[in-house]
Design a protein around this nucleic acid. Structure first.
Lengths: 192, 192
DNA sequence: TACATCTTGGAGTGTCCGCTCCAGTTCTGC
DNA sequence: GCAGAACTGGAGCGGACACTCCAAGATGTA
């Protein structure tokens, strides 16, 4: 929509403001008024550059998720431990995008449009983890690797949630417990 | 606040309507208007019986969480597998409270009042899982048991989230992977 | 029965929201 | 340096929201 230089600059200013606000007040607190005030821009300018408020929010989240990728080139050099550590850093680090991401996921539970976007991102991440699993243990089948990835990633998400709600929770410690655990589990087993 | 019989009945009708609406439209879609219309009650009656809309929502969630407890008496007879299965059923079963619970947790990420309620419930559940871990392996220390419980529960929460967003996801299968996995992990270990 | 207290409905209040509209301005290609 | 398209701010719209107010009626108590 933006073609002139000034328009593109305004667009960036709006995205910055949105990013800042998401970090400060979470996804529920971000209003159009706050965004435009923060970006020093009129509502008309905003709608000249974005189709809706959510459009800007999604754009910010998308960019932020891309930014934390430890191997954006897809060289396939990251170990499972690297990925887990990166995820922990992502959840507990200074970037607030993890909180936003989980809030979006929560919304996705009743909003199909959001759900599809969240799922797409989740599946990409599962693939990445599965690849690392197979690199670590080449005898693994593809399905097994995906299962392990799903479990580790699910666990990390849940632990991240706990960490975000409970500041005293040591996510790194608990996440590390997953590494040997996941390596030992290949098939669903009855224990009782 | 309610003392007469009619007031108590109205209160129940309001809670029923809230419960029904939470199930149908999720936590974001529940409005006061919808609740009062559904309960066939005026706004004034609502506020005669509840302090706020959230009050009614929390009450419903609280009751629902109590209802799914497989061992409400606290007899200590539930195995880890029982608890995991119960959690899976809770997440994938017909009751919509799991979805609401996760949505509340998401809100808790930026709303401290909600966060404290969510955390309280989470800690109770962790304790229950930890007790089951120690029953399964009495040599376990208290801290170790809590760690295992935290990991299993975190994983279940994350897997539950995936299951709710992705209807094709087999949560039961993946949750079972956690059982032998958790049993083998006691201390954080470096693997790389 | 007498009467204090509780319950009721729903019109109304204040607030906030996302978004539209548009007249005026700035930008860029030619 | 002109034409036309892109950009701008901000008043204002329509509607949703949680919540208040209160007169009238129902209920429980002595």
């Amino acid at each position: 929509m933006a073609r002139y230089r000034v328009g593109l600059e305004t667009r960036e200013r709006i995205l910055s403001a949105t990013r800042r606000l998401l970090a400060e007040v979470g996804i529920e607190g971000v209003t159009l008024k706050a965004i435009t005030a923060n970006a020093r821009v009129g509502a008309g300018s905003f709608y000249n550059l974005f189709d809706s408020k959510d459009d800007a929010v999604f754009e910010v989240v998308r960019e932020a998720i891309e930014a934390v990728d430890p191997d954006p080139a897809g060289a396939g050099t990251d170990s499972l431990e690297d990925l887990v550590d990166a995820f922990v850093a992502f959840m507990t680090g200074s970037s607030p995008i993890a909180r936003i991401y989980l809030q979006l996921a929560g919304r996705g539970l009743t909003d199909p449009a959001i759900a599809s976007r969240v799922l797409r991102s989740h599946r990409r991440r599962v693939e990445r983890f599965a690849d690392a699993c197979r690199r670590e243990d080449p005898s693994l089948g593809e399905g097994e690797a995906i299962s392990r990835a799903e479990v580790i990633l699910g666990a990390l998400t849940g632990l991240g949630m706990t960490a975000l709600v409970d500041p005293g929770f040591d996510m790194r410690y608990h996440a590390r417990l997953l590494l040997p655990a996941a390596a030992g589990a290949g098939h669903p087993t009855r224990t009782g």
